[in-house]
Design a protein around this nucleic acid. Structure first.
Length: 258
DNA sequence: ATGGCGGAAGCATTCCGA
């Protein structure tokens, strides 16, 4: 089965791109971030017509918002993370049935953090602590687990177009990378790195300064798979195609095959 | 040194993203 994560930067603005991409890439599960809409504005009819009969939505006006779209049933949906009183809609969790058993899918839009030392960075650190605790508990109950989404963390220097110039700036700090490793230590692995990948593989490029054209990007969208799922992962890839379309999201979709 | 683009809210301009 194929599971994709994609930060669409407004589902209202990007619906046609999502539909066009799904028509060409009929994945089983699509996890979206930055919907920027409330659930009553979610384009359920259009997505159901595209084959995604089961949609779990955790929306919010203007900012944030996440959803899981599936061809098959979604069970035990959880909105938000426990142990952290987050006012933003950032995490939605559901169980889907894969060919070799159920898969727990945790879809997150991680806090951006703006700049080290800022209040928003402190929020990012606290939120990441709450997320770690939440995912640890989910893993105990559901060993076959995928944690995916927009992590807003470039885990290693090779995940940045300019690791020297951007050293210790947002997405590149030791503290953020330590939190990423904390998730790995729960018993997860970065599925993208299980396979040979092109040099300078990124998932986000700034709209400004011809970021995409110059491949000045970051790899901040990730699919982490649990130790129980790891032996059956067949591939993980970033699809840069929709980033070349007119008025694209600044993020590319990332797909794992299990 | 800074903003550069793009979306939302809402109608001029600000906030926010990464």
């Amino acid at each position: 089965m194929k599971i994709t994560t994609w930060n669409v930067n407004s589902l209202t603005a990007r619906l046609q791109h999502v539909l066009d991409w799904l028509a060409a890439n009929p994945v089983d599960v699509l996890c979206l971030q930055e919907l920027k809409l409330t659930e009553d504005k979610f384009p359920l009819m259009e997505l159901q017509a595209a084959g995604y009969a089961h949609c779990a939505v955790f929306g919010q006006k203007t900012y944030n918002g996440v959803a899981i779209l599936s061809r098959t049933e979604l069970r035990d949906v959880v909105r938000n993370i426990t142990h952290y009183p987050d006012e933003s809609s950032r995490v939605i969790t559901a169980t889907v049935d894969g060919p070799e058993g159920p898969v727990r899918v945790v879809n997150g839009y991680f806090v951006n953090g703006q700049a080290p030392g800022s209040e928003k960075f402190a929020y990012k650190m606290a939120w990441l602590g709450g997320l770690n605790q939440y995912v640890g508990e989910e893993l105990k109950a559901h060993p076959r687990l995928v944690l995916l989404g927009d992590f807003n963390i470039a885990p290693e220097d090779r995940d940045s177009f300019d690791p020297v110039g951007l050293k210790d700036t947002i997405h590149h700090t030791k503290e953020e990378r330590e939190h990423f490793q904390g998730l790995i230590r729960l018993g997860l692995c970065d599925s993208f790195r299980l396979f040979e990948q092109p040099e300078k593989s990124f998932s986000w490029w700034d709209y400004r300064m011809l970021g995409y054209q110059k491949n000045r990007g970051l790899r901040i969208d990730h699919v982490l798979v649990s130790d129980a799922l790891r032996p059956q992962v067949k591939g993980c890839a970033i699809d840069r195609t929709p980033r070349k379309w007119k008025q694209p999201s600044d993020h590319a979709p990332v797909t794992v095959e299990i």
